[in-house]
Design a protein around this nucleic acid. Structure first.
Ligand code: SF4
Ligand code: SF4
Lengths: 156, 156
DNA sequence: TTAAAAACGGACGGATTTGGTCCGGTTTCA
DNA sequence: TGAAACCGGACCAAATCCGTCCGTTTTTAA
């Protein structure tokens, strides 16, 4: 069902959690407790996110993780990319890593690109900060696109 | 990588194939040959698509499959839905079938809805006919949204 | 009347991916 | 020095995906 990886979903949830307390250091234990995601899983996630540079780790006692950037400047697209690699709906779009064995004969090879880009744009326009507000007022925040405004041009 | 099911991809490819010859009946054998997708797989796909009503089957000798509607009126979203069920990025969006075990405590439960809807819209705005044209002139066809026009309002 | 050509339904199984756990290091602080 | 945290990776159970196969049913044409 075009499902997002469950782990990726968790990552967004946990990162948003962190966003609520911008620059406090959060231990995995605390994050796990607050988000109901099992501890070892949170740990694994944070490791990956740290490697991708989205969070910064502080080792040792009183250590933990901090968001590298304010939550309003991290898009869910970045989170996805960090955990699952480049967003590639099919194997023949531009950033794809692997190869399609039908690609040589496929008449529509490359036509997924536009669609893929549209989705990419959609995901890039939502930040972690957006994900924490109540659904009702999402995208109605001051300073963001007004409700009737330009919708970030998909399929341009 | 937010990857589309390979079978779903194939389905779109094959259906587009069919769209090139609007109302001829196509046998699975022929479709397989033309698209390089293995025959039994095409067969399986067509069965599902027939059940979903996207194609009409004609049994017996000289039988085959016909598109139920012109290719320009079938969106890729429909194809995806037919094969994989409702488009649901996570388990907590509106049309989702299954349930998230963290849902009770998750602070952002429901916030994926908007994102999900945006993607849905993107996929719904691309038809099978669009997928067959050369990438260069996609969305530059007469009668469709002009290049600078309203992009079907995502995240509305 | 018969034979061939097609769709139909479903079962099956191998391969791959995913989700989650565990453990032995290493770094830092009190 | 010891406790608290991250770090890296191995590991595995479960689920999913993908492709194949086979017997049945329907229709057409010889
Ligand atoms: S080449 Fe064709 S079959 Fe292969 S991934 Fe691209 S669209 Fe799908
Ligand atoms: S409830 Fe939270 S964790 Fe569960 S699917 Fe929705 S966003 Fe993800």
């Amino acid at each position: 069902m075009i499902r997002l990886n469950r782990l990726t979903d968790y990552a967004v949830v946990v990162l948003s959690q962190m966003g609520r307390d911008q620059d406090r250091v959060h231990t995995t234990a605390r994050l796990a407790e607050d988000s109901a995601v099992p501890l070892p899983t949170v740990s694994k996630l944070m490791k990956q996110l740290a490697r991708a540079g989205l969070v910064t780790s502080r080792r040792g006692a009183a250590g933990g993780y901090v968001l590298s950037r304010p939550a309003a400047q991290i898009s869910v697209a970045e989170v996805i990319t960090a955990l699952e690699g480049p967003i590639a709906l099919t194997a023949c779009v531009d950033g794809a890593v692997d190869h399609c064995d039908v690609e040589a004969l496929c008449a529509m090879r490359g036509n997924w690109n536009k669609v893929n880009r549209a989705i990419e744009t959609a995901l890039a326009s939502v930040t972690l900060a957006d994900m924490t507000v109540s659904p009702a007022e999402m995208f109605a925040l001051p300073g963001r696109r007004p409700p009737g405004g330009k919708p970030a041009g998909m399929l341009s």
